[in-house]
Amino acid sequence: MKKISILGSTGSVGTQTLDVVSHHPELFAVEGIAGGYNVMLLAEQVRRFRPKKVSVATKALADQLATQIPAGVQLFYGPEGLLEVAAGTDADMVVTALVGSQGLQPTLAAIEAGKEIGLANKETLVSAGHLVTERAARYGVKLLPIDSEHSAIFQCLNGESLDTIHKITLTASGGSFRDRTRDELKDVTVAEALQHPNWSMGAKITIDSATMANKGLEVIEAHWLFGLAYDQIEVLIHPESIIHSFVEFKDYSIIAQLGLPDMRVPIQYALTYPQRLSTPTGRLRLSEVGKLHFREMDFERFPCLRMAFESGRAGGSAPSVFNAANEVAVERFLQGEIKFLQIEDVIARTLDKHETVDSPELEQIIEIDRWARQTATIA
């Protein structure tokens, strides 16, 4: 039986991870879960999956949760609670499904504790890819991708050598506004932006999909996961989200991974790798799909993706600033403080004010992240 802990258990990936676990209770035991503010859902998860350790965002929420869960469950809160669930249990694997850069320190702690990582928190590699990959290598820890695109690339590379890769292509649905011009985006609402055509995801990642910032974060994550130069990474709009990504090799053969858009498939593959099990998702029937469509990426239409590539190529602290500024800008949009197109303006202004630091240490990354957030708040 594989023991797992989940950081971000009440979010989209976290709840779907527990759904996968529920379909194979004989294979998995939940050692720890960390949620944020959704105490009602977290209490339900504790009662159902009986983890040994649980964490919430604040002490007040921990006190509230304590009245709703069985006796004997150890209860923690705040950043220290995340570290406890990440590194302080008997889990074999930690699924990092937190939103944003808050996943960095718990992921590093889990790696140092020798835990296998199911990585759904792309911001961890974006903010500190050099640190995460170095420590994973030092401690002999596997980084198993959960994002559908990186899982697809990972699967396509089974049995292949990284030296034989010509390029990889990450596919993008295009998000909520893929068929709108920039002029048509000036006054779009939050509700409109949250209507993703293919995937069921949290608010932040759904907005990121609409701006294409999410694909930019995935580009940087792919650079670190697979050790590829940015010139070897391309993005293609694929509205159906059937081909999740593909690899082109030096002989120009292409291997792609296809399936219906259901996050439970890449989640389960990370949990069971290298084995495959049946899943509750539906089967892909290409005869019913009929046609698949593709469009070249337009970096003028999606400047957030262009800025992500530029930040990745600049290296050092630049991706951390891109990520932090984007997180703040998205939250400002969700709160009605700025308009949709101003998200990219906030990111650009914050990047313009930053002097890149090469190979920053963890303390520097934390300080640069803090500076970028403060800057983006007023940019």
Rank of each mutant, 00 (worst) to 15 (best):
K2W: 03
I6H: 11
T10Q: 00
T15I: 12
Q16K: 11
T17N: 10
T17W: 01
H24Q: 11
H24N: 09
P25H: 03
E31Q: 11
G32A: 09
G35Q: 05
G36S: 12
G36I: 01
E44W: 01
V46P: 03
R48I: 13
R50A: 13
R50W: 06
K53L: 07
S55V: 02
S55F: 06
D63G: 09
D63Y: 10
Q64Y: 13
Q64K: 08
Q68S: 12
I69M: 04
F76P: 07
P79R: 03
L83S: 12
A91Q: 02
D92N: 15
D92Y: 07
M93T: 14
M93Q: 08
L98K: 05
S101W: 01
G103S: 08
G103F: 02
G103E: 07
E112Y: 03
G114D: 11
G114W: 10
E116L: 10
I117M: 02
G118M: 08
T124M: 04
A128H: 00
L131S: 04
T133L: 03
E134F: 04
R138L: 04
E149I: 04
A152M: 05
N158E: 13
N158P: 08
G159N: 12
E160H: 14
T164A: 14
T164C: 08
K167C: 11
L170N: 09
T171I: 02
S173H: 01
S176G: 08
E184T: 11
K186D: 12
A191I: 15
E192N: 09
L194E: 06
L194R: 02
P197N: 10
K204S: 13
T206H: 05
N214M: 02
G216R: 00
L228S: 04
A229H: 09
D231T: 15
E234L: 13
E234P: 03
V235W: 03
I237C: 06
I237F: 08
I242H: 11
P261A: 03
I267L: 09
T272C: 13
Y273W: 13
Q275T: 14
Q275K: 15
R283H: 13
R283Q: 15
S287E: 11
K291Q: 14
F294M: 14
F294A: 14
D298W: 10
F299Y: 09
R301C: 13
F302P: 09
F302D: 04
C304Q: 10
L305E: 04
L305W: 00
S311E: 02
G315L: 06
A318W: 05
F322K: 04
N323I: 02
V330F: 02
E331I: 11
E331W: 06
F333G: 08
F340G: 05
I347K: 05
D352L: 08
K353N: 13
T356S: 10
S359C: 14
I365C: 00
I368T: 05
I368S: 11
Q374K: 14
